[in-house]
């Protein structure tokens, strides 16, 4: 006899969309046809480039689920302080929960220390916060971008459980279309360990960097169905952070 659950279409989960089972036992003697997943794969591509005295981070505004677009105008980036921005792809519910937590921590830090959390401090805090949930992770693929204590651009990429690395060449990509975008960035900016380009790469101005990121998003949006609609671009300098929205194809 058919089970009640099998009649509900929206719980048919594509195995590719299931991200771990979080170690909770819901087993029964008969195989489950549907299993509750606390995660969703909502897409989200993040690119970030650091310069000598600036940093640019860009992330798309599409909230997708399967073949559906839920929203074309969500915010994936969090302006944590005047000179630090975090952006994440992944499961948007976790991303929001993570941001709410970090916002709270940044405010408490300022009360206790009477100064803003530094970018390097925020990077470590983000790592600890992610690792704290090692066995039921925040499914958030994060990039942190900002200026370090010397005012130099800082970019680091994370995995979902908090492993992170400051990019030596000052660029990184994470989230849905990272695998498509990364070789483009390698070609344009890579020096260490990248054989595709010249040893000496040009120093791009902040305006050129923004234009390059726009171009990459345009091309990536053609290939990744989860990426599109619009891009939030944050340009961080010593004088503050400028934000712009760049429209992509809404198809």
């Amino acid at each position: 006899m058919a089970s009640i659950a099998s009649s509900e279409g929206d719980r048919t989960l594509d195995p590719a969309m299931q991200v771990g089972g979080a170690g909770v036992d819901v087993a029964s003697s008969t195989p489950l046809q549907h299993r509750f997943s606390p995660y969703s794969w909502n897409g989200g591509t993040v690119l970030a480039v650091a310069g000598k005295d600036y940093c640019v981070v860009a992330t798309d505004k599409r909230l997708a689920e399967g073949y559906s677009i839920l929203s074309r105008k969500i915010d994936r980036a969090l302006q944590l302080t005047d000179k630090t921005v975090i952006a994440c792809g992944g499961s948007h519910n976790d991303v929001e929960a993570l941001y709410n937590h970090l916002k709270l921590r940044a405010v408490m830090y300022k009360y206790n220390h009477e100064e803003d959390l530094s970018t390097i401090g925020a990077a470590q805090l983000l790592s600890n916060t992610l690792y704290y949930k090692r066995f039921f992770p925040y499914y958030a693929l994060a990039v942190i971008a900002g200026l370090d204590d010397d005012g130099v651009g800082y970019v680091a990429g994370y995995d979902a459980v908090g492993s992170y690395l400051r990019s030596r060449d000052g660029y990184t990509a994470n989230g849905s279309a990272a695998a498509i975008a990364m070789p483009i960035l390698d070609n344009a900016l890579g020096k260490v360990g990248v054989s595709s380009g010249l040893d000496e790469k040009p120093e791009y101005s902040i305006a050129d960097t923004i234009e390059m990121l726009k171009d990459i998003f345009v091309t990536v949006g053609e290939r990744d169905i989860l990426c599109g609609d619009a891009v939030d671009i944050y340009a961080i300098t010593a004088t503050g952070t400028e934000h712009e929205v760049f429209e992509l194809k809404a198809d």
Partner: peptide, 10 residues
């Protein structure tokens, strides 16, 4: 008071 405010915002 600060904690109450943060909790409310959360």
């Amino acid at each position: 008071m600060r904690t109450e405010c943060l909790n409310h915002r959360f």
